Simulated assay, not measured.
Amino acid sequence: MAQSTEKKLTGLVAATFTPFTAQGEVNLAEIGPYIDYLITTQGVNSIFVNGTTGEGMSLSVAERKLLAEEWCRKAKGKMEQVIIHVGCTSLKESQELARHAVEIGADGIAVISPSFFKPRSAESLRAYLQNVATAAPTVPFYYYHLPGLTGVNVPASDLLEGIETLIPSFRGVKFSGSDLMDFGQCINHTQPHWSVLYGVDEQLLAALALGAHGAVGSTYNYLGSHMKKLLSEFESGNLEQARSLQFKMQELISHAVKVGFDVGVNKQLMAEVSGLQLGPPRLPIMPCPKVHAVSIKQKYQHLFSVH
Rank of each mutant, 00 (worst) to 15 (best):
N266R: 10
V265W: 15
V265L: 15
T134G: 01
P114S: 12
G172F: 06
V257L: 08
K228N: 13
T21G: 04
S236W: 06
E70N: 13
V259S: 10
G237C: 02
H213Q: 03
F304C: 13
V139L: 13
S244A: 05
V132D: 10
V263S: 11
A256T: 07
A206D: 08
H307K: 09
M286W: 13
G32D: 12
L129E: 08
G77F: 15
L205Y: 06
Q203M: 08
F48D: 00
T134A: 01
A22G: 01
V196G: 05
L205K: 04
P19R: 05
L12I: 06
T41K: 13
N221M: 15
S236Q: 04
P137T: 01
L129R: 11
H213S: 03
S94N: 03
D182R: 04
T53A: 11
Q277A: 11
L166S: 07
H85P: 07
S4A: 13
V200K: 05
G275M: 04
S90P: 14
S157W: 00
E202W: 07
K7S: 01
L125H: 11
G77A: 12
S178N: 10
N266A: 14
S115I: 08
K92P: 02
I163G: 03
S232Q: 12
G77Q: 03
Q246C: 10
V259P: 00
N45E: 07
I47L: 14
M249V: 11
H307Q: 12
N50E: 01
Q95H: 06
L210S: 12
A14R: 00
S169G: 00
H302M: 14
N153V: 08
L97K: 11
V257P: 01
Q203S: 04
E55H: 14
P140D: 00
K118F: 15
G177K: 02
T21M: 09
K78V: 12
I35T: 03
L269E: 07
A206E: 04
G260L: 03
L230Q: 13
M286L: 15
E30H: 04
T219K: 06
G279Q: 07
G224C: 05
L205S: 08
P19T: 10
P19A: 06
A62D: 09
L67T: 14
H145V: 11
V257A: 07
L210D: 07
K228I: 09
L197R: 08
Q298Y: 06
A209E: 05
D36C: 02
V13P: 14
Q250R: 15
G260H: 09
V196M: 12
